[in-house]
Every structure is written in C-alpha cells, then in structure tokens.
C-alpha cells in the first residue's frame, strides 16, 4: 500500500489542475493557487492534502517544490512564492516551516513569508517554534500537529489491557526520550501505573543496539506488563531487535511509530497517518481560502481519529488478544491472511 500511494518526488515545476467535476455553485471559479514546499519529496501528507481538494471539488492550482532536504533551496522558495503572488503556502516539516514562515518570535519578519496565508504540516514541536500556542498562531498561519498526545497513547494501551507497570527502553542520547518518560510517569502517577525505564548502553558516544535485548530482559524481570516504544531514530532503526526481544520475553509492545508495527514485531500502535494529517491541513486551507476565515482564528490541532494498528502474528504468538471493540476499530496487520492496510 505504501508503494501504491507513495509517488515519486516531483521535481521542478509541476502545475496540477484539479478542477474535478465542478458543481453548479462555482463552475467557472478561478482555481486557488497554492505553493507547496516539501522537504523529502512527495509523500502521504502531500497526497492527502491534494486529494482533499479533489474530493471536495475545490479547484486548486498546486505549485509543487521539493527542497530534497537542502536547506539552501528554501530561500529561493520564499522569493518565488512572493513573486508568484500565490493564495496560500503549504509547508511540510519543521525545517521548511521554520525557514520559510519564521519562528513566531523572529526578529526579522521581512525575510519570511508574512503576507501570504500559510498552513504547515508535520511539525513535531510547533509550540514555541513557529507559533506561541496551539489556540492561535497570532498571525497569518495555521497548521496541524501529527504526534499522538501521550494521554491518548496511554488510554489506548489501557484499552488493550490494564497495566500496572509500563516498561520503556530508551536512547539516553535523545533528550526527547527522557521527556517522554517523565510525561509517562506523570500520567502513571495519576492513573495508577509505574514506569520502569532502562537506557540503552552507550559506547563511543553511540547507543549500542546489542544491549537492547538485555535491557528488555531486565525490564521483564522488573515485572513490566507492557513495553512502550518511544519515537526515536535509533530505536526505529533497531526496531527488529527491540520488538524481537520483547516478543521473546513474551512482553506486549506498543509503538508510537508506524514502522515498528507494520514492518516489525511490535504488537500494536497508535498513529496519525500522514495522509490524514495532510487532509486535515487541506481542510484548514479550505477554511482560509473558501470560507475566508482568518488563519489566526483557526486553532492548530491533530486529526480526530487515531489509526490503531494491530500486528496479528505477534498477538497470536503472545496469545494476548485484543478486545473486540479495539479489533473493530483497528487496522489489522496480518501477512498470513494477506491483510495489510
């Protein structure tokens, strides 16, 4: 499915007319011109953004630019967007967003896009970065978040089974992991579970993948009943080792990322799909362009519905079956049945 959806990055200028079958309301309406600034090529969020306009029959002209992870290109993008006098700018990712739209407290606003309304997507920490708060950007932009709130993640785990001790293996070099563990502990204190954490060993300033299995075994000995896999580049790379160790120890695991569940052996996970995030971002763009709502009046939020992923072979191995309701809501990953989302 990934392959089916993931399009090749479109480089250079590509003007896509998406008139669709325009309905009586505004048949000859001039399409809205949207400047899409991407970071890693065309992927699901961009696709969701585009599809939304097709589905809603909103005529748009998309001017698609890919920075291909090159920060320097972004300056050109700013100039081009200003020169084209587009109706709206879409920015993908933290770097593109911060470089093109500027931090909320930037001292040199003229060097960013300020007059054209903009929507951003896939920005991991928008608050304190591009915006002062999620309620309002206080300026001409709005956008979406894509990380599942910790509270929601815990609720999801709790809905699978009641937990008393949650285990976390983390990369001590990643500051975010520590933050996540503190946050988890705080929620645990409120809702009645403990957090047992184990840091991966670091050798030569690099985390040691080989130490993961031992840490998981240690946590198992500490009596954890669920393993939490935080979003972490190192852990993502070593996901097979980590989830494999959990499986071997008979510990169910919950992952925040899609990969650990879909392409590895984490038991289940809860994510916002990029495609959905892209659609939500387009929805906000629609509010601005079609319904003429001021961007600062549109709060920055995440999609309403979470995608729940359940890795059925792991479930069968652990014999820890999901509740029927969760099963009904979830996307089941079961290669044996040929079922993949």
């Amino acid at each position: 499915m990934k392959g089916a959806l993931l399009r090749l990055a479109i480089l250079g200028l590509a003007v896509v007319m998406l008139a669709g079958n325009a309905v009586a309301a505004e048949p000859a309406a001039k399409p809205y011109r949207i400047y899409m600034a991407l970071w890693r090529g065309w992927e699901d969020a961009a696709q969701g953004f585009k599809d939304y306009f097709i589905n809603q029959n909103i005529p748009v002209e998309l001017i698609i630019r890919d920075a291909a992870q090159d920060k320097d290109k972004l300056k050109e993008f700013i100039a081009e967007a200003k020169q084209l006098k587009v109706d709206l700018v879409f920015t993908w990712g933290t770097t593109v967003t911060e470089e093109m739209l500027g931090r909320w407290d930037a001292s040199d606003p003229q060097s960013y896009i300020r007059d054209i309304p903009a929507v951003f997507a896939i920005v991991s920490q928008p608050v304190g970065g591009v915006v002062p708060s999620l309620e309002s950007s206080g300026r001409n932009i709005t956008g979406t978040t894509y990380l599942v709130p910790m509270e929601t993640q815990v609720n999801l785990i709790q809905s699978y089974r009641h937990i008393t001790r949650l285990g976390v293996v983390y990369n001590p070099l990643e500051r975010n992991s520590r933050v996540a563990i503190d946050e988890l502990s705080a929620i645990g204190a409120r809702s009645g579970f403990e957090v047992a954490s184990a840091a991966v060993e670091v050798v030569d300033g690099k985390p040691l993948a080989a130490s993961i299995a031992g840490k998981v075994a240690g946590l198992k000995a500490a009596g954890i009943d669920f393993l939490y896999i935080p979003p972490d580049t190192f852990l993502n790379v070593s996901r097979d080792i980590l989830t494999g160790a959990a499986l071997e120890q008979g510990i169910p695991s919950f992952a925040v990322g899609e990969n650990a569940v879909v392409t590895s052996k984490a038991m289940f996970g809860g994510v916002y799909r990029y495609y959905t995030v892209g659609q939500l971002t387009a929805y906000k763009a629609e509010q601005i362009l079609v319904h003429k709502i001021k961007p600062e009046a549109i709060p920055i939020d995440a999609p309403k519905r979470l995608s729940i992923l359940i890795n059925m072979p792991v479930v069968r191995h652990l014999k820890l079956y999901p509740p029927m309701k969760l099963l009904e809501l979830a996307e089941i990953i079961d290669p044996a049945e040929g079922k993949r989302p």
């Binding site: 479930v315 999901p322 029927m324 969760l326």
Partner: peptide
C-alpha cells in the same frame, strides 16, 4: 476468529 483468536478467548465482549 479468522485472525486466529480462539472463540473462547475473545476479549471485551461485554463492551462489544
């Protein structure tokens, strides 16, 4: 059941 959950091991039937 098709996913391999034994019929006597279904979970959360009341909530369902």
């Amino acid at each position: 059941v098709g996913y391999g959950i034994p019929v006597d091991h279904l979970v959360g039937m009341d909530e369902f």
